[in-house]
Design a binder for these strands. Structure first.
Length: 479
RNA sequence: GGCCCCUUCGUCUAGCGGUUAGGACGUCGGCCUCUCACGCCGAAAACAUGGGUUCAAGUCCCGUAGGGGUCACCA
């Protein structure tokens, strides 16, 4: 008989990564949705490290995952570093617990020792494959006497059943024929539990009442439901989140480019934007595209998580990021850009122009890296683009540069209105369009053809630097 | 191959029996303009397919096709 966890209990959800690599996009989304649900309901978000695969788990990966989550702003109420009442939160530190629960099952006849060798089982699998048969463990050791002195694993004794149905919050009812299930190994020969058992024991003991995870786990769920029952605990609610695919519609992987969240940090994405993009991949709230964390917490629910896998679209993520870059207060944007300036070798710390630079560039920068590279001319010598020079700093530019130079040198105080008058006067005196005046000046001042409004550029550079660069430009123009 | 899940513009999606099938990214055209952006206006672009149920189906049911996932002493 299935027992459902009472949903009136405070929500306890978890993210349980295995530390075999960095925090990837898919894991980040699973973590995010769990976190949002916990915050939405006022429940708890637990972080548990499933490090029972000793071959592949590393401490570096643990660090990378915690890093990624912190960067995204996903704080956990219980877990590594913060502890909690149901710890420890690393599975390898909970071995005694699994042993205890496994022994309970064995004593109750719900699990048994299996002495089959890996080699033997592999051979049986091969044979089945050759005969185009499905291999299901035949229960060879089901009724053997328990002999702890022989090397053995523990297998779950599958109850007789026609089929098993559980309800998924995003996919609805999912039914699995009992004939496709088998006596799964739940504890290895070395006493370390396997995923299906470790996760269930932990979810039970940590009082998790909603399990939201990638839908690559749907096929594990039937056995897990049976394990909850065998252990005598209520079954939690499940929400299986569709995969994130690459452009070729296969599961997102390294082949598809950057897949770690920290790679996006390094590329100059804002965490708000990554969160915003990831949540919209599969979840929606009407037509709204841009959400603050607060709005997400307010509106998020599994009822609007779609059941279909979605393709990761880097262009749209860039757009989301750009939208966020535009919306940050300039001083804040400047503060966020600091590490990226440093990474680019630019010493900008304490430069009072920073917020103004950010303001001038925030609607043209798609990322923080972009912001830095576009604005480096204020913090480093001009790097002249040869094509720009050839096109705009010819001999005909010399008198224009000279006129602007003289105008700036003669002006009492530099301001936008004065500069506008100067440029218009210079243009009018020669019957030129404003562009004919502004472009050579822009190239002389920035080294390129694209920049914010020319008056803003001059104001950012200041009188001395502007004059110096105009002089240098004059030299190049043969003036 | 068995089993499970999925199927609205190229992509992310709205839709929860009656809509000119809406929005967003991207694309294309135009406006704005000192460049680049931003912004604004406009265009092309979708219900995989075949049967049902119903007065009425993108919405419900079944089949087919396609896609994804999973079949370990990995998670």
């Amino acid at each position: 008989m299935l027992v459902s966890a009472p949903m009136s209990a405070p929500v306890r959800v978890r993210f349980a990564p295995s530390p075999t690599g960095y925090l990837h996009i898919g894991g980040a989304r699973a973590a995010l949705l769990n976190w949002l649900w916990a915050r939405h309901t006022g429940g708890k978000f637990i972080l548990r490290i499933e490090d029972t695969d000793q071959e592949r788990s590393t401490e570096d990966a643990v660090r990378a995952i915690l890093d990624g989550m912190r960067w995204l702003g996903l704080d956990w109420d219980e877990g590594p570093d913060v502890g909690g009442p149901f710890g420890p939160y690393f599975q390898m530190q909970r071995l005694g617990l699994y042993k205890e629960y496994a022994e309970k099952l064995v004593k109750a006849g719900k699990a048994y020792a299996c002495y089959c060798s890996k080699e033997d089982l592999d051979a049986q699998r091969e044979l089945a494959k050759a005969e185009k048969r499905q291999f299901i463990y035949p229960g060879t050791c089901r009724d053997l006497a328990y002999d702890p002195s022989r090397r053995h694993v523990i297998r779950f004794r599958l109850p007789k059943l026609l089929e098993l149905t559980f309800t998924d919050l995003v996919k609805g009812a999912i039914t699995r024929p009992g004939s496709t299930l088998q006596d799964e190994v739940i504890v290895r020969a070395d006493g370390v539990p396997l995923y299906n058992f470790g996760a269930v024991v932990d979810d039970v003991t940590m009082e998790i009442n909603l399990v939201a995870r990638g839908d690559d786990h749907v096929n594990n769920t039937a056995v897990q439901v049976l394990l909850y029952e065998a252990l005598g605990y209520p079954v939690p609610a499940f929400a299986h989140l569709p995969m994130i695919l690459g452009a070729d519609k296969t599961r997102l992987s390294k082949r598809h480019g950057a897949t770690s969240v920290t790679a996006y940090r390094d590329m100059g994405f804002l965490p708000e934007a990554v969160v915003n993009y990831l949540v919209r991949l599969g979840w929606s709230h009407g037509d709204q595209e841009i959400f603050t964390m607060g709005e997400l917490v307010k509106h998020f629910g599994f009822d609007h998580v779609g059941a279909t896998a979605s393709v990761f679209n880097p262009e749209k993520m860039v757009w989301v990021n750009q939208t966020w870059v535009k919306s940050l207060p300039p001083a804040e944007l400047a503060r966020r850009a600091l590490p990226y300036y440093r990474a680019a070798g630019l010493e900008v710390e304490g430069d009072p122009r920073l917020p103004d630079v950010a303001k001038a560039y925030q609607e043209r920068a798609k990322t923080l890296v972009d912001l830095v590279s576009q604005s480096r001319c204020y913090f480093a010598p001009v790097e002249m683009d040869p094509k720009a020079q050839e096109k705009f700093l010819g001999s005909d530019a010399a008198p224009i540069l000279q006129a602007i130079r003289d105008g700036i040198a003669a002006s009492a105080a530099l301001d936008a209105a004065g500069l506008e008058k100067l440029f218009h006067d210079v243009a009018a005196a020669r019957s030129l369009g404003l562009g004919k005046v502004a472009q050579p000046v822009r190239v002389a001042l920035t080294g390129g053809t694209a920049s914010p409004g020319i008056y803003d550029v001059i104001l950012l550079l200041g009188r001395e630097e502007s004059l110096a660069r105009l002089d240098a430009g004059l030299k190049l123009a043969g003036g």
